[in-house]
Amino acid sequence: MRILFWGFICSLLSQVVLADRLSVRAPEELSWKTYDEVVRHALQSGDELLYQKVDWKSNVLDGQREGYKDDKPIVMILFFGDHRSNC
């Protein structure tokens, strides 16, 4: 079910980034020659980093306190596990 959060995050991305990931085959072997390309494949990049601009609270209490202080609605993403990590 963790796919939900990353699906949500991925849906925030520009399609250009996804198209690159899907069309360019990363190196078959890891060597010092291919090292940087493999790193690029594993890294988050470009618009994939958009979600990092959001100051995510990891729990409801911290969210309620800040929402109360700033008089703002609270957007709660509730799924299984830590959604900033694994999917």
């Binding site: 959060f5 925030l12 958009l50 979600y51 601009k53 959001v54 100051d55 995510w56 609270k57 990891s58 729990n59 409801v60 911290d62 969210g63 800040e66 929402g67 700033d70 703002k72 609605p73 609270i74 957007v75 709660m76 993403i77 509730l78 799924f79 299984f80 596990g81 830590d82 959604h83 900033r84």
Partner: peptide, 15 residues
């Protein structure tokens, strides 16, 4: 993302 940043407080947690 701008809406989340400016108009809301965002929580990512586990039901």
């Amino acid at each position: 993302v701008e809406l989340l940043q400016k108009e809301c407080v965002s929580v990512a947690s586990s039901d």
